[in-house]
Design a protein around this nucleic acid. Structure first.
Lengths: 145, 145
DNA sequence: GTTATAGTTGAAGTGAACTTTAAGTCAAGC
DNA sequence: GCTTGACTTAAAGTTCACTTCAACTATAAC
């Protein structure tokens, strides 16, 4: 095994928990960079692990890869993000999480009252009225697949 | 406009908020039934609106169409579901909603502590550790698209 | 130097949940 | 009875986020 400060694709895959094929895919859509050996193999700097953790966290929060791209584009290229950078970015997530939690809670409470009243009238029922949830869904984001 | 007790596909689409193409799709996968006119056009009974409200609510809660099929298959065919039927079904949803709310809340609180501590160490951070969320994601369900 | 393992590419495939298209048919109002 | 708008079908297309494939090449350990 090599002992440089650079990581191979399978090392990054294992450490990040993201499949090698996904790493190549991310590179193709411009979400991830890699150096190359003389033979053309990828070698990753360690900071990609943080970037990947960021990407995964963002995906968990319901952002699409496109949104992650946009978010990361607002970060300074090359330097480690400052606390201010991080705070700015995380505000988006925070708001999103709050919205999702609110919508789900409302859905749950609506469900409770349905059970409680036995109304069976789904079309008037809170749970079947998805306006709040729809507002949260945003532009085509897939959440928690 | 006709004045029978049956609804056309576009009427159902408008009242349910589900596109006509989706209604045809649902019929193809066995999720929805329709009578036919002598000429072959679909005519829906009014109770499909409740079924569709159910389907939409289930989708909002994160169930896949396959799961919705399974859920609806546990309901008695033909008769209006009783309160017991409804309670049984909604238990699944309730548990799911609780799980999702818990996971999202944990994620949000982890994010708060990241901002608070300025750690920037995403890989050790609660928000980048998706174990709880992953557990909620289930079998390929798309949530809040 | 040989060999096993890990890596490379572009292109095609996957699956969920639909939507769109094309070519034609039906129903309602006048 | 004719026109207009709504309806029908099967098949192909779409989007997202990847994965799989086939054919080939590089690297590391011995």
């Amino acid at each position: 095994m090599r002992t440089t400060d650079l990581l191979t694709v399978s090392e990054v895959a294992e450490r990040s928990g993201i499949a090698a094929s996904a790493l190549r895919f991310y590179e193709r859509i411009g979400l991830l960079d890699a150096q190359r050996t003389s033979g053309g193999q990828r070698r990753y700097e360690r900071h990609v692990l943080r970037r990947l953790a960021f990407i995964r966290a963002a995906r968990n929060v319901g952002l699409s890869l496109e949104e992650v791209c946009d978010a990361l584009d607002t970060l300074p290229q090359g330097r480690t993000p400052t606390r201010a950078d991080w705070t700015r970015l995380s505000h988006t997530w925070r708001a999103r999480l709050d919205d999702q939690i609110r919508a789900l809670t409302k859905l749950r409470d609506g469900l409770d009252s349905c059970i409680g009243c036995g109304c069976l009238s789904l079309k008037r029922c809170a749970i079947s009225n998805p306006s709040d949830v729809a507002a949260v869904a945003g532009a085509g984001a897939a959440f928690l697949r």
